[in-house]
Amino acid sequence: MNTQLQVTDLRVHYPIRKGVFRRQVGAVRAVDGVSFGIAEGETFGLVGESGCGKSTLARAILRLQQPTGGTVQFRHRDGGEIDVTSLPAPAMRALRRDIQIVFQDPYSSLNPRLSIGMTLAEPVRAIEGVGSRERRARVAEALAAVGLPMEAARRFPHEFSGGQRQRIAIARALITRPRFVVLDEPVSALDVSIRAQVLNLLVDMQRERALTYLFVSHDLSVVRYLCNRVAVMYLGRIVELGEVDRMFAAPRHPYTRSLLAAIPRPQPRKIRPPLGVVGEPPGPLSVAGGCAFRSRCPHATGHCAAEPPVLRDLGNGDLVACHHAETLPATPRFVAA
C-alpha cells in the first residue's frame, strides 16, 4: 500500500523571548522530533492529553503553523512526492485542495456573517477553472453528502445546532475533493447522541471517497472506533505507535496503560484497574533530559533519568519508547468479567 503522508523528525518549537530586544532565551518544544507514516485510505489516530502537542502537530502538517524542522512528504495525485514544509506559497495554496481540516469547535469554525452556501463555496473559489455554475453544483452535492437539505445553503450558522454545524464544516472540508483530511477533535464538542451521527458520517465519507484521515483526539473510545493505527503523544513526543486493536488489548508503554485504565467505562464494575500514574503532566518547560514521563511513572529507574528512550520496534511492527517495555508486568484486565 502506498504511503499518503510521511512525517519525518517534525519539530515545532516556540521561542521564549525576554528583555527589551526580545532576545530568544529558550524554546517550548511543543512537537519535538515526531516521525510516522500514514498509508493511503488509512485512519491514523493521534491521542494524548491537553498540551501534549497533538493539535500543534496536526497544524504543522497543514502548515497552518510553520514547523521549526523536519519534513512532511505528501503523495500527490500524479504519484509524485512533495515536501509540504518547504513548498513556496503559491504551490502550497494549490496543494490545499488536497489537504483539508475539520476543527473542534462548531461555533467558531463557521463565519457567522456568511450564509452556508457562501461558506461552502469559498474553498471552491480558490480552485482555478471552476465556474460559478459548477460551484453551485458542488455546494448542492456537498450538502446532500452530509445529510443536509438544499435550502440550508441560504441560511446562516446561528440557525443550526452544533451537530449540524459540524456537518457543514465537514462539507466544507470535502468540497474541494481532498485526498487527505485532518480531523482535529471533530466530535469532542458534541453531545453523545450527535457524536455517534457524525462519527458514522465520517466513516461513510471515507468509504465513498477513498479518504485518508489523521484523527486527533483525547477520547480513546472514539479513536478505537475510527482508527486503524494510533500514536500516543506525551509532551511533544510519540511514546507508543501501533495497530489500534493490539494497543488497546496490550498497551506496552506505562503512559498508554494509564490512559486506558483511566477511561471511565459505561459498565458498572467491581474491580478498577490501578491507574498506574500519579499527578499531572509537568509543564513542557520543566522537562530536562531523560524520559519525559518519568516524573509520573511508577516504573521509573535511574536509566530513565539518564537517557531519553527512543521509539523501537518490539518485534511486531509496533513502536514503544520505554526502556522497560519488555520487563513491565503483564497488563491487568480492564473489565471485570
Binding site: 447522541s193 457524536r195 455517534a196 462519527l199 478505537r224 472506533y225 488497546f248
Partner: peptide, 17 residues
C-alpha cells in the same frame, strides 16, 4: 463506541438535541 469487543456501526439517536 465500545472499548472492547467487535467494532460495529454505531446506532445513534436520530435528530437533534
Amino acid at each position: 463506541p465500545p472499548l472492547d469487543g467487535p467494532r460495529e456501526r454505531l446506532r445513534p439517536i436520530p435528530g437533534q438535541v
